[in-house]
C-alpha cells in the first residue's frame, strides 16, 4: 500500500521522447564536440586520444573525453546520431538480445537504464529477451574480445530472420580507445549508435530506427 501512495506522490517521470525533443535535463552538453569559430583544430587533432578529429569530428571514433574542450570545442546537446543501413520490416514491437563482447560496464549500465521510469522503453514496445531465439535485434556493446565474439556469432546464428544488428558505443563501432578493430570485422552492423557510453536517449533512438520508426 505504501508503495502505491509513494508512486502516485512521485508523479510521472517518463520522458516525452520521441514525440518531443529531449529536455535539457535528459541531455545536457554531453553530445559530440563541435568546433567553435576560433577552434584550434591542429592542437585538438594532435591531442585527440583516438584520432577522431580530422577535418570534422568522427562520431564513431570519439570517446567523449572532453579533451578538445581545452581547444575551444563545445559539446553539443544532440545525441541522436545513429546511422541506419537496414531496418526491420515491422515496427510495432521488437525484442532485443543484448550481447556484451567486452565492455567497460558503462554501456551495460546505460542499456539497463532504459528500463528505469525515466525512459521506460516498454511503452514503445521494446523488450529485452534472455534468449537470441526470440530476438529481432542483436544489440552489441563493447570492444570485441576474441573469446566472446565466438559466442556472439553463435547467438547471431540462433536468431530467426528477419534480424538486425545494432552496435552501440565507440568500442563496438571502431574499437574506441582500446584498439583499431570494431565489431563490423566479424558481423554486419545495420544500425550504428555512437557514444562512450551512448546515453539512453541515443540507445532509444537507435532501437527505434532499427524497428523502422
Amino acid at each position: 500500500m505504501r508503495w502505491i501512495f509513494r508512486g502516485i506522490k512521485k508523479g510521472i517521470l517518463t520522458t516525452r521522447y520521441p514525440e518531443e525533443k529531449p529536455a535539457y535535463d535528459e541531455v545536457p552538453e554531453i553530445g559530440l564536440p563541435v568546433p567553435d569559430k576560433c577552434a584550434d583544430f591542429a592542437s585538438a587533432e594532435s591531442n585527440c586520444p583516438t584520432g577522431a578529429i580530422a577535418d570534422a569530428v568522427d562520431a564513431e571514433k570519439c570517446i567523449f573525453c572532453g579533451r578538445c574542450e581545452d581547444f575551444r570545442f563545445k559539446r553539443s546537446r544532440t545525441v541522436e546520431l545513429a546511422e541506419v543501413r537496414k531496418a526491420l520490416p515491422f515496427s510495432k514491437s521488437i525484442h532485443v538480445f543484448v550481447a556484451d563482447v567486452g565492455s567497460c560496464n558503462a554501456c551495460n549500465r546505460e542499456v539497463e537504464m532504459l528500463n528505469n521510469p525515466f525512459y521506460d522503453f516498454h511503452r514503445l514496445g521494446i523488450f529485452f529477451t534472455p534468449t537470441p531465439r526470440h530476438a529481432d535485434v542483436l544489440l552489441v556493446i563493447g570492444y570485441p574480445v576474441e573469446k566472446t565474439v565466438k559466442a556472439l556469432l553463435e547467438a547471431y546464428d540462433a536468431m530467426p530472420e528477419p534480424k538486425v544488428v545494432v552496435a552501440a558505443g565507440s568500442c563496438a563501432l571502431s574499437g574506441g580507445i582500446f584498439g583499431e578493430r570494431g565489431i563490423d570485422r566479424y558481423i554486419d552492423v545495420d544500425v550504428r549508435v555512437p557514444g562512450c557510453p551512448p546515453p539512453p536517449i541515443a540507445l532509444l533512438h537507435g532501437l527505434l530506427k532499427a524497428s523502422g520508426r
Binding site: P28, F64, M113, P197
Partner: peptide
C-alpha cells in the same frame, strides 16, 4: 547520472 552529466558533461564523469 543526470546530475553527473550536468556537472561534468559526462554521465559517468569520464574525462
Amino acid at each position: 547520472l543526470r546530475l553527473n552529466a550536468k556537472l561534468f558533461h559526462h554521465r559517468y564523469a569520464f574525462g
